[in-house]
């Protein structure tokens, strides 16, 4: 049995401890945010935060995650309200098919956790591992910039 802390709650997972986190999140915990894109660490669709840093959940067995804080898209907001970053994505209508967007949001959150006001070049460099095929990139950048601004004006704590 493996005990995972996901979005602040502990879950006991029976089953193969070699299973990558992605499948446990999606199937055992019924969380839809993280998506299967490649299973190879090449696209970022499966990105979640582990101890506030973005990781590819498709390549991380649950056995190495005990005692660590896992945050998924579902864990960003509070009390059913979307987080500032999610809100910014919605306001900017930053999605086409939207399949890549949860991973984008998680990666961007990882950046904001490190640095509250990254430059445009830093955002582009940091987002490099994540792929979007619909070409929503310009809106994704706008959304991240908007979140930076919103969070600064609201003096909001960065959401973990």
């Amino acid at each position: 049995m493996t005990v995972l802390t996901v979005n602040g709650k502990e879950h006991s997972i029976n089953g193969d401890p070699n299973t990558p986190l992605l499948y446990v999140l999606r199937n055992d915990l019924k969380l839809n945010g993280a998506k299967f894109g490649c299973g190879l660490g090449q696209c970022g669709a499966c990105t979640v935060l582990v101890d506030h840093q973005p990781v590819y959940s498709c390549l991380l067995p649950i056995s190495v995650l005990e005692g660590r804080q896992i945050t998924t898209l579902e864990g960003l907001g509070k009390n059913g309200e979307p987080s500032p970053l999610q809100r910014a994505f919605i306001e900017e209508q930053a999605a086409q098919c939207g399949y890549c967007i949860p991973g984008m949001i998680m990666r961007a959150q990882g950046l904001l956790n490190r640095k509250a006001a990254p430059s445009d070049a830093e955002i582009r460099a940091y987002m490099q591992p994540n792929l979007c095929r619909c070409g929503t990139h310009m809106r994704i950048l706008r959304a991240i910039r908007r979140a930076v601004k919103d969070m600064r004006t609201a003096r909001a704590e960065p959401v973990r």
């Binding site: 190879l40 660490g41 090449q42 582990v50 840093q53 990781v55 390549l59 991380l60 190495v64 660590r68």
Partner: peptide, 25 residues
Amino acid sequence: TGIHPLPGRAGRIMPGFEGALTDAQ
């Protein structure tokens, strides 16, 4: 840090496990 091709070029991608694994791991 993995292995990464030059931007826009084909080439092996191996993801880095910097944030994923602890020092002990």
